[in-house]
Amino acid sequence: MENFISIQNLSKIYSNKFTALDKIDLNIKKGEIFALLGPNGAGKTTLINIICGIVTPTSGNVLVNEFNIIDDYRKTRSLIGIVPQELTLEAFETVFNNVNYSRGLYGKKPNNKYIESLLKELSLWDKKNNKLRELSGGMKRRVLIAKALSHEPQILFLDEPTASVDVELRIDMWKIIKKLKSNGVTIILTTHYIEEAEEIADRVGIINNGKIILIDQKDKLIKKLGKKKLIIHLESKINKIPNSLMKYKIEIDDSKNKLTFFYDKINNNTSITTLLQKIREENIVIKDINTEESSLEEIFVNIVKGSNDEYSRY
């Protein structure tokens, strides 16, 4: 896949001297869903805002479809739609007029048929004449997506699209995003919710302190850094781990009746069978067994923690 967005050596230092982005390099491929994860203040929104033209970069270069975002801003911005984090809408306008207004800003002539199909797709058609202040938070979020798609962009930036929305709406949003992808739209989303990235992203980037600290395919990332746990619930308590089990990466919890064995899932020889055999030989009765996989969230926390430790050394 070709690079649709190419970011080279991008930095942003705000007027209050805060470095929001520090020499970022990032490539986004056409048609993918890229999730940018990072804690608050990591630089996610600044990065999006620079690509969209809302914030001026201090240095570096951003190309969208091989056009420079500064010199060829008309070409690049025409390709991009943005859904902001905040529910920023004018209170007294109607849904239809407001979405049409956004289309006009991007230089497109009114197209009531397209806006109608868009609003129908986002379940907003029956609200088309409602004033924006009359809508619920979830509906407002949908209006923001409709506005971002009103000019038929090829790239969609979603800045925390499911922040403060209920589970049902979040799942709805994921469906919308997946559908957009199937229509060929390249999607870049920032999120706090790891399960969101886990559910819909093709690739994941982790940003912290204005630096991209990791980029990889979501599945590879989980495989590469993910660990599995085998949790063995015991029938009765044991005081300590028997010597014969000491060579395994095994822990006993405070209740003394649960053993946790960590293993690498990409390793074919996990030693689970021999471990269970040894437990049996020690006359320890197993009550139940279950496995747990590292979530992207755990991976994210570990990476960010590592990055912070490294950062604090400077």
Partner: peptide, 13 residues
């Protein structure tokens, strides 16, 4: 004030 300036700044204007 409302934050809707973002779409004007992001538009090819």
């Amino acid at each position: 004030f409302t934050g809707t300036i973002y779409e004007i700044l992001a538009a090819p204007l």
